[in-house]
């Protein structure tokens, strides 16, 4: 396992044990158990509706799980207000639909949370934002509104927005699914660079090339649970489970 230990303590980055979640009478997660170490890049794949999004949304409590436990950075996800706030601050998330704030400029999008949550001064936050924009490759777009950017640029702004909170874990929910093919690469490049810098990442994606190249581990989801997991080589060349084989044959 290539995961580097960058966390502060001895606890792993994320621990999930028997996580279950219902929407009304529909069970979206039926017992997810896995552990993710610091610096690990985990790619989650699986058919649509299998609960991938629900799983990573439970990790930063956009959905609350109903049974089992999730421990992020040594803090258990309970109903504790303080833990939830702290975890949200430390876990960044990038959405399929970007979800940039359309009424704010790119700069304001990125500095909003640092100013209001981390209490940084505006000049401070803005200089950091400029560095981040530089890092995701669009330093010249700072004063535009999201509506004036292309999809790929928007998604890179969204990544910069998450990074501005200095998260230690990043969640990606199908970050390239809403993009035109020629823009996918620019976003994946940013994510690769991020992974190389040692960020702990969970990525839901259908980009198998990305999974092969970058992932340390692949989780295959079906019917709300992890059906199979393993290193990319193992997973793509020698899948064990029938469901996995079927899925791979359809997608590759």
């Amino acid at each position: 396992m290539a995961a580097k230990q960058t966390g502060n303590g001895s606890t792993p980055a994320i621990v999930c044990e028997g996580v279950k979640k219902w929407f009304g009478d529909f069970q979206a997660l039926s017992g997810v158990t896995t552990t993710i170490g610091w610096g690990e890049v985990v790619v989650v794949i699986g058919p649509s509706g299998s609960g991938k999004s629900t799983f990573i949304r439970c990790i930063n409590r956009l959905e609350s799980h109903q049974a089992g436990r999730i421990v992020v950075d040594g803090r258990e996800m309970t109903n504790d207000l303080r833990n939830i706030d702290a975890i949200r601050r430390d876990v960044g998330m990038v959405f399929q639909q970007f979800n940039l704030f359309p009424h704010l400029t790119v700069m304001e999008n990125i500095t909003l949370a640092p100013i209001w949550v981390r209490n940084r001064t505006r000049t401070d936050a803005e200089s950091q934002a400029r560095q981040l924009l530089e890092r995701v490759g669009i330093p010249e777009q700072a004063d535009k509104y999201p509506g004036q950017l292309s999809g790929g640029q928007q998604q890179r702004v969204a990544i910069a927005r998450s990074l501005a909170m200095n998260p230690r874990i990043m969640l990606f929910d199908e970050p390239t699914s809403a993009l035109d093919p020629e823009m996918i690469k620019e976003v994946l490049d940013v994510m690769k660079e991020l992974a190389e810098s040692g960020m702990t990442m969970i990525v839901v994606t259908h980009e198998m090339g990305f999974a092969r190249e970058v992932a340390h581990r692949v989780l295959f989801f079906d019917y709300g649970t992890v059906v199979e997991e393993g290193t990319p080589e193992h997973f793509f060349t020698n899948p064990q489970h029938d469901r996995t084989k079927l899925f791979l044959s359809q997608i590759l």
């Binding site: 606890t11 792993p12 309970t78 109903n79 504790d80 833990n83």
Partner: peptide, 23 residues
């Protein structure tokens, strides 16, 4: 591979920080 390690012992949050209670 990695078996679920034991995290910290789960503690019930104090009442004034419990989201459900506050709600």
């Amino acid at each position: 591979m990695s078996k679920p390690t034991e995290g910290p012992v789960p503690t019930r949050p104090p009442l004034w920080r419990n989201i459900v209670v506050i709600k």
